[in-house]
Design a protein around this nucleic acid. Sequence first.
DNA 1: GTTCTAGAAC
DNA 2: GTTCTAGAAC
Length: 185
Amino acid sequence: MQNNSNQKHVKNHWSLGLLESMNDPSSVYKETDKVVVIKDKYPKAKVHYLVLPRDNINSIYNLDKSHILLLEEFGKVFHDIQEEHSDLELKAGFHSIPSMQRMHMHIISKDMISACLKTKIHWNSFTTSFFLPYKDVLRSLKDNGHVEKISTEKHKTLMSTPLKCNQCEFVPKNMPDLKKHLLSH
DNA sequence: GTTCTAGAAC
DNA sequence: GTTCTAGAAC
């Protein structure tokens, strides 16, 4: 029998991982009628959650004005979680081009101190405009009725942005240097 | 999204 | 010689 070698079509493809986590009680942090909050499996900071809709919405580019109420619930969840972590400064937003299926909003602390933070792509996906703040996405939805995609060129440019500290003007020479520096804040 | 690892960078 | 980055993964 031929093995199922075409990975793209396998049921357990890595890009479906969030759907599994939503149904795994050990991953779920909190839930409401409309959303589920899970702990990021590879947190990139001291605090790192993902907020996902129960409805099958694949990405922010599938949103229209009918989803404004849903997005406002994302905002309430963010507010609640910030209050639960009053010792840390959190931010909420979406990746312009996510790798994982099912729309998800990151709630992440600004320290960026984590063993799972390893690559320039990790860094730039949270510290450049590749990270779309929650408030900007909600505003875009209210003003334009949709969220605008970024170009492949813009994506490439953002991912190759030189490393720079997100809390000061420090320019590290590489990732290990940056990680050491972050501990000093 | 991560893992692995070749070879670039130091 | 070691550290670090970046591209393939069938």
